[in-house]
Design a protein around this nucleic acid. Structure first.
Lengths: 232, 232
DNA sequence: CGATGTGAAGACTTTCACAGCA
DNA sequence: TGCTGTGAAAGTCTTCACATCG
């Protein structure tokens, strides 16, 4: 479609950071900051400046030597690279606490995501309105996905229902899935699945806590480090 | 305290996978599966078998050649390594949709996490009971953290309130933070911060979606791959 | 002169492939 | 014989350091 998209393949690690740069750059725009150096952006993102420059260089050379990067242009480029110049239509399966929190999440409309439906099988939840969207029966999923050309599905069901939700999403034509249920869902090749699991995150934290304690009790063997971990 | 904890330093990438193995192994236990090979576990986790073996080997050699791993013993070892033989006390800052979803999240008590408090500054939310915990004013945070010896804080506030929440958590004595707000919070060295951002995850997905579309329109230049991404 | 852009070195992670043990 | 445990190779990501250019 458009002429010269994605000139190079961007490394996964970089793709995971672009949304963070984007968010920080948007904040700069709000503060009417027109220009930013790799050093400044690196400080905001809590990463190394060389990493910022290398990350940005994968999209092309948009900086000015001796000066820095034009914030607005950078925002435009990152958005384009991440596909945020499209509008993405998403559905949420599961209208429990989490599904409701997600559909009420303010960030979506700004960033080009529209929620086309929230689905559940629990009769008692049907027809409730959460985040401005009426909860529909899961059996209507395929129809909505096809009609609205939905490409991203969010799974916010209990663990036991997640694989079924995934199967239905995939059969309906969704090609990317964001899974919040604490299970590994399997999907055929060609479907992108990302998993976000609260208790996995907590367990990683408790590993670090535990190390801290052990280290402290062992006459400070290793000085505690690691001040920040990206989520990707 | 205990004699021979953490015999080696475990790589970050491995630490991020241990919770997933643990969850799968627990499922096996429920199905009364007593033994598992690296190959089987690898299939369940959707990773390579050599990776499973190497990951497990960092904790010591607990397998039996020609046979596999004793599920129960492996569960015990992973739990110990992740510090799940402790009980971890956590607090949640922010009693909005997300804070409520988190405090209602069933997974916590099972896995040794107890929620010692949910805090907010919004008068209208105070004294509501969410997930069995009464919402208290943020000013009471320090007292609860100290009294209950809380080490992990979860930030579920809007973006604008997150850094203040982090500062209060840190000043109160919390040393690990799980941040759900869509901002980078800064913290002194020695504090572990992990960030989980819904819209970052969606943007990573839309990058892949967008590539898929571009590739398809360019006479299938590169065959689509990448079927699963871990969250860590 | 100051900050980008980038080869090259170094660190970390994954995967291979096979020796070694039950 | 079958599966673990692990050196070594391959691949990926980060960081350094400096040539380059506005």
């Amino acid at each position: 479609m458009s002429p010269h998209r994605s000139r190079r393949r961007i490394p996964d690690a970089t793709v995971a950071r672009l949304p963070i740069y984007l968010q920080l750059l948007n904040e700069q725009l709000e503060n009417e900051v027109a220009n930013i150096s790799s050093d400044e952006l690196a400080n905001l993102a809590a990463v190394n400046a060389a990493k910022v420059r290398k990350d940005l260089s994968y999209m092309g050379s948009y900086g000015t030597r001796g000066v820095g990067y034009d914030v607005e242009y950078l925002v435009y480029q990152i958005r384009r690279e991440l596909g945020l110049d499209h509008e993405w239509r998403i559905v949420i399966v599961g209208a429990g606490n989490l599904g409701q929190a997600l559909s009420g999440y303010g960030g979506f409309p700004d960033r080009g995501y529209t929620i086309e439906g929230v689905f559940d099988i629990d009769e008692s939840k049907l027809d409730h309105v959460v985040g401005g969207v009426r909860v529909r029966h899961l059996d209507d999923l395929a129809q909505v996905v096809a009609q609205k050309d939905v490409s991203i599905g969010v799974i916010a069901t209990p663990a036991g229902a997640a694989q079924d939700a995934a199967n239905r999403l995939i059969k309906s034509g969704v090609t990317s899935i964001l899974n919040f249920a604490p299970v590994v869902v399997s999907a055929p090749l060609g479907i992108t699945v990302r998993r976000v699991d609260l208790s996995v995150e907590l367990q990683i934290l408790s590993y670090h806590e535990q190390r801290r304690l052990t280290a402290a009790s062992q006459l400070r063997a290793v000085p505690a480090e690691s001040s920040s971990h990206a989520s990707a």
